[in-house]
Amino acid sequence: MSFVLTDISKTYRSGRKTIEALKPTSFSVEPGEFVSLIGPSGCGKSTLLYIAAGLEEPTSGTVSLDGRVLRHPGRERGMVFQNYTLFPWLTVRENVRFSHQLRANIDYTRPVGEILRDSAYVDHLLEIMGLERFADSLPRQLSGGMKQRVAIARALANRPRILLMDEPFGALDAQTREEMQELMVLLRLHERTTIVFVTHDIEEALYLSTRVLVFSAHPGRLIEEIAIPFPDDRTLDIKLEPEFLRLKRHLLDLLHGGSRTGFDRHAILARLKGEPHTNTANNT
């Protein structure tokens, strides 16, 4: 009973060259898990998420939910995009209930009571997202953080089995970002949402996840899988705990360690001071 990605790979063709964006990668997500995909840009984590959502086709491999292979996007996988992607002509409430008026989600045989429960669920989502005062506002009147809360509510209104999130807080300022992270913790506690989350922010991944998958770039590949030992009910305080800091250091080493980033501090310092250039990496 889970969401399984098997041997997913992606290669692009540009001219005569083929670029390997993602080496064959497999992982599965169990109900209630919060799995983060983390890595530098170009590591294929977003590509992997889009493939999981059915929005991109993998070069090889399959995506399945409870043993059923999924080839196209569908209501069982909700998605939250990096750029809000709200429908600007609809109010906040109309955005959140957008999925309820799509054919795939209308079951005419359902009793009226259940349909009413849908609209009650929209109200509930607006409430827990702190949006009830803005229910009739238009997206352009909202701040970035609020827009993203609407996008999350819109995806949840459809009651997806799994929520896929592509760097959802990447465009937010640091403070709004932390607020959204706290909101995600509470949301998971109360809605028991299963989430796959793409980010390049190490702290964010550690704070939110039950499991972190670390990717490396050129070619994109899964290099390590780390279980996060903190309880589900977390506060921002855990960011200061020794275990959190130990994991953070470990991830920093994995992602930015050695000369992997190509950033040579000594060489730049020497150039800034006007000293003759010595490449320390080569000399030692």
């Binding site: 059915g54 929005l55 992607t85 957008f98 799509l102 795939a104 819109r154």
Partner: peptide, 29 residues
């Protein structure tokens, strides 16, 4: 019309005709 909006419609369960009538047309109107 940004492709994101169409993709959002698909992930919410929209069919191709709904992507046209409920997203592309109102966005471009």
């Amino acid at each position: 019309v940004p492709n994101d909006l169409v993709q959002a419609c698909y992930t919410l369960g929209g069919h191709w005709d709904e992507a046209v009538t409920k997203v592309l047309f109102p966005a471009a109107a």
